[in-house]
């Protein structure tokens, strides 16, 4: 199963660059990034090439980090591509907590990352509808 890291951040200048500095020093490559924010704080979600390393260096620096399972599905690069994908999900009454995008490492495809309550169910549903579900290799994750 693909994993993402989420990090608690305060909504103030200098918070993000602290994270990217730490990851750079540890030679961790960020593959996808997403931020959800309020006026006071935010949650940074990261897909990186080395989860374990990123998790340990960020924790060492005092950040609160959590790991969660995610699902990445290839989105056809044409009008209605995302719409069709979302229709597949909604017809099974699956609630999407949030989503963001990532590029395949070498296949040139665009993928949508989904956070849902039951990722196994989502994978089955999408595979039945013929979608290409990315494994770590396709996304450049070790």
């Amino acid at each position: 199963m693909l994993k993402q890291l989420s990090v608690f951040l305060e909504n103030r200048s200098g918070q993000l660059v602290q994270i990217t500095e730490i990851l750079t020093k540890s030679s961790v490559n960020i593959r996808a990034i997403n931020i959800a924010e309020t006026n006071d704080y935010g949650v940074l979600r990261l897909v990186v090439d080395d989860n374990e390393k990123a998790l340990s260096v960020l924790k060492d620096e005092g950040f609160i980090v959590k790991t969660a399972n995610i699902v990445a599905a290839a989105v056809p690069d044409s009008v209605g591509g995302l719409n069709k994908l979302l229709l597949s999900i909604s017809k099974h009454d699956i609630d999407i907590d949030y989503m963001y995008s990532i590029f395949g490492k070498s296949d040139g495809l665009a993928y949508m990352i989904f956070k849902v309550k039951n990722p196994d169910q989502l994978i089955n549903v999408l595979q039945e509808d013929g979608y290409n579900i990315a494994g770590p290799d396709a996304l450049g994750i070790n």
Binding site: S6, F8, A36, T38, V43, I64, K66
Partner: peptide, 11 residues
């Protein structure tokens, strides 16, 4: 101060 028990990836 936020702590890991109370932190969630969901805003």
């Amino acid at each position: 101060e936020m702590n890991s028990d109370n932190f969630s990836d969901s805003l």
